[in-house]
């Protein structure tokens, strides 16, 4: 019996997570509903003249990503916690870093789906034309969502056993993802021409470097987090 390779495990875990989510739609629906509520709050709460709306948009986009992303990572191991499958998962000979990477990609996929829904709707309701900068904003948000996934997914293992994990997780995750949030708001502002700065690409590179650093760190950390 040969233990499966690293990327094989990533694919198996990712496929399982997407399949269970497509059946229940619990996490995705919760994230999407929350994203839509935030969109309406921002749209009706801050709606003003087009110039002001344009200044508001970066903050609204990244706040939506922050809250929906945190909601998503908090549910990362919910399926494993329900019937105790987490123990069976970590007892398998599969590379635990690969298991975590599969979980991270699952979180990223759900954030992407939610942002595909929220971003155009928010731009539409705030009447901000983002078509000219859509590519760089999409890249920023993609890397930002990855940032939430790489920070939040390993920490979400707390939710399997810890009491008050729903409260504890945001307290731990929010400070860690603050650099991503600041870089994202700055970068998106520069892309839209509402923030002083020369180059949005510098912030893109910053978020990418953050993703790599925390991603690699998380893969090493996870191994130590799963045993009592």
């Amino acid at each position: 019996m040969n233990a499966p390779g690293f990327f094989s495990v990533v694919g198996v875990v990712l496929a399982k997570d997407l399949r269970t989510e497509l059946r229940s739609k619990q996490t995705l629906m919760t994230m999407a509903m929350f994203g839509l509520v935030l969109t309406f709050v921002f749209a009706f709460g801050f709606v003003a003249d087009p110039a002001t709306n344009k200044k508001v948009l970066p903050g609204a986009l990244w706040a939506s990503l922050l809250f929906t992303g945190t909601l998503g990572v908090g549910r990362t191991f919910a399926r494993e916690a329900e019937l105790g499958a987490f123990a069976a998962l970590v007892l398998s000979p599969a590379d635990r870093a690969a298991v975590l990477l599969g979980k991270m990609l699952g979180n990223l996929a759900m954030s992407i789906v939610v942002m595909v829904l929220v971003v155009p709707l928010l731009a539409l309701m705030l009447r901000v034309d983002i078509t000219a900068t859509a590519a760089i904003i999409a890249l920023q948000l993609l890397l930002g969502a990855l940032g939430f996934a790489v920070v939040g997914t390993p920490l979400a293992v707390m939710a399997v056993n810890a009491r008050f994990a729903e409260v504890l997780l945001p307290i731990v995750v929010f400070p860690l993802v603050t650099p991503v949030l600041i870089a994202g708001v700055k970068g998106t502002g520069i892309a839209l021409g509402t923030t002083i700065g020369e180059d949005a690409w510098g912030w893109v590179q910053f978020i990418a470097a953050f993703d790599v650093a925390f991603g690699v760190g998380g893969l090493f950390l996870f191994e130590r987090m799963v045993t009592e």
Partner: peptide, 10 residues
């Protein structure tokens, strides 16, 4: 173990 360690939706 004491729990079934399975995935309910699967």
């Amino acid at each position: 173990g004491h729990r079934t360690m399975l995935y309910g939706p699967l």
